[in-house]
Simulated scan of single mutants.
Amino acid sequence: MSPILTADDLHRIFKNLDTNNNGLVGIHQLHHLLLNTGAQATLDELEELVGHTSLDSIDFAFFYEELVKAKIQEKNDSGCNDDLSKAFQVFDLNGDGFITCEELQTVLSRWGLWDKSNGQDCKDMIRVFDINSDGVLDFEEFKVMMSTPCRPHNSI
């Protein structure tokens, strides 16, 4: 389904699904519609999501709005992860799926952001976000690091 369906479009779809003209669309009819549009959901998942075995036209419209919101969020999350994945690859110089202290220092040095004379150890930088304490950053730890707002050194 396109996220640009009008109220009239939704009403027409609902009427087509309501084959017995009782003002309700059954979960099986909704499941069939979703499968035809490429959505992957089992009948049980759909029933749990909807919370009913049938929907009236208002519930159908709300269901559609929730699908659109979920699709937009999925697209936003995917785009964000793609960007983070590319950024991670910049630091993961050997492509092993981890950012080591040496890799971090090399990349920051290339960018002119690493000053060896400042006394800062890149191990300390990694340790802050190294959730499993293995001395390197994996992609999930990198995502946490990238989503953490920067704070001035003197702030509490």
Rank of each mutant, 00 (worst) to 15 (best):
D9Q: 15
F60W: 03
Q73M: 08
F62A: 12
K71F: 06
D59P: 00
N22M: 04
D83A: 15
F98L: 09
K123I: 08
L67N: 07
I58D: 10
E48K: 15
A41P: 03
D92G: 10
E65R: 15
I99C: 06
E45G: 01
V68I: 07
K69Q: 11
Q40M: 13
N118W: 00
L108W: 01
L33G: 05
S133N: 12
D59R: 03
S109D: 05
E103L: 12
K123F: 07
N81A: 09
V25E: 03
N22Q: 09
M1S: 15
A61T: 07
D130S: 13
S109M: 11
F62T: 11
F63N: 06
Q89S: 10
S117R: 13
N21L: 02
D92L: 09
R127Q: 14
C80D: 06
V128D: 00
L113H: 00
E48G: 10
L30S: 00
K123P: 05
L35S: 06
G79S: 02
S155A: 14
N154M: 12
I72G: 00
I58S: 12
A70L: 04
G38R: 11
V128S: 08
E65N: 15
N16M: 09
E65W: 07
K143Y: 00
E47L: 13
D18A: 00
N22G: 05
Q120N: 09
D18N: 04
F60I: 03
A61D: 01
L108P: 02
E103D: 13
C101N: 07
N16R: 07
C80K: 13
P149I: 12
N81P: 00
G51D: 04
L55D: 00
K15C: 05
S155Q: 12
L34D: 05
P3K: 03
A7M: 15
V144L: 05
N154F: 15
L67P: 04
Q105R: 13
I13K: 13
G38W: 06
F88Q: 12
E74R: 14
E102I: 02
V128Y: 03
D44G: 10
T148V: 05
D8G: 02
D121C: 06
Q105E: 14
S54N: 09
N36A: 06
N94M: 05
A7H: 15
I72N: 02
L55P: 00
M145T: 08
G135R: 08
E141I: 11
C122I: 01
L108H: 03
S147A: 10
E47W: 05
K69C: 10
D83F: 12
D92P: 07
I4N: 15
F63D: 09
G38H: 07
S109N: 08
L30I: 02
F139T: 07
A61Q: 04
H11T: 13
D44H: 12
T42Q: 09
S155M: 09
F63C: 10
C122P: 10
M1E: 14
C150G: 04
P3A: 03
D77M: 13
R12A: 10
A61Y: 02
K86V: 08
G23R: 04
Q120E: 05
D77L: 14
C122K: 01
A7C: 13
D96T: 01
F91K: 09
L10H: 04
N16Q: 14
F142C: 06
M145L: 13
I99H: 02
V136F: 11
S147E: 05
Q29F: 06
D77E: 15
K69P: 02
H32W: 06
W114Y: 14
